[in-house]
């Protein structure tokens, strides 16, 4: 199957799963007793967070392969993963804030997970700024790979330090994380379908972005060889 065919099928599967997830979230799943209706955002929030983590891990893996093998494919993959991951990471922060306002009484608290997610968002925001400034040069790809690897190395130590920071001086509001008590099997089913929907959505967007970047790379190579041919024709 061609790349285009794969992307079409991925899109259709994502559409079907997303419709099923929406139905389950808004109609099928029972309302959580303590938190009420706002708890339903959890079925968006958690899959987005997982997908964002996977995307950022992918940036680092692609970075290692790019530095090792020097093939442009790896950089296109890493760049696409960083952009896609950034979208989902933003969604995590936004949906989290919407949930936190009625439950915790504040849009934002410096809870360890929130802080870690914000740092992640800043890290990969910096990565995207760097890529935008470097333009599409071989140098930009190399710098992107280095920063992607260093950022991923930073993540575990960010998690540890933020957790220590918060356990030594615990905030009042952070004792209960939402969604830990999924007693009802319908809740588990909804979460699983939602996870599947967001995973395919991520893969689909990633494939689209990756294909665009591949095209961009090929176009750049063509333009360069055209310029070379023209220069040679003028010389002779």
């Amino acid at each position: 199957m061609s790349g285009r065919g794969i992307r079409l099928w991925l899109g259709l599967v994502t559409l079907a799963l997303m419709l099923a997830a929406l139905y389950m979230i808004f109609v099928y799943v029972p309302t959580e007793a303590e938190q009420g209706i706002v708890q339903r955002i959890f079925y968006f929030h958690v899959p987005c967070a997982l997908v964002a983590f996977v995307a950022f891990a992918l940036v680092a893996i692609a970075g290692v392969f790019y530095l090792w093998l020097g093939q442009q494919v790896w950089d296109d993959l890493g760049y696409a993963a960083a952009e896609t991951g950034m979208v989902f990471c933003t969604l995590v922060l936004v949906t989290g804030s919407i949930w936190a306002k009625p439950i915790w009484g504040a849009w934002w608290t410096w809870d360890s997970r929130l802080t870690t997610t914000l740092i992640l968002w800043l890290l990969y925001g910096g990565y995207l700024m760097l890529r935008a400034m470097a333009g599409d040069s071989e140098q930009g790809a190399r710098f992107g790979a280095v920063v992607g690897i260093v950022a991923a190395l930073d993540v575990p130590i960010v998690i540890v330090s933020v957790r220590l920071w918060r356990t030594i001086h615990p905030a009042v509001l952070v004792t209960r994380q939402g969604g830990h008590g999924l007693e009802d099997p319908r809740m588990v089913a909804t979460l699983l379908v939602s996870l599947a929907a967001f995973t395919t959505l991520f893969i689909w967007i990633l494939c689209l972005r990756f294909a665009t970047l591949r095209m961009h790379t090929r176009l750049g190579a063509l333009a360069r060889s055209l310029a070379l041919a023209e220069a040679a024709a003028q010389d002779s």
Binding site: I119, L123, G125, G126, M133, A134, S161
Partner: peptide
């Protein structure tokens, strides 16, 4: 090595230095 790179250093270094 980047044009306008002085901006990039704080944008990358500060979040990485957080821990």
């Amino acid at each position: 090595r980047l044009r306008g790179g002085d901006l990039v250093l704080p944008l990358l270094a500060v979040p990485m230095f957080v821990p």
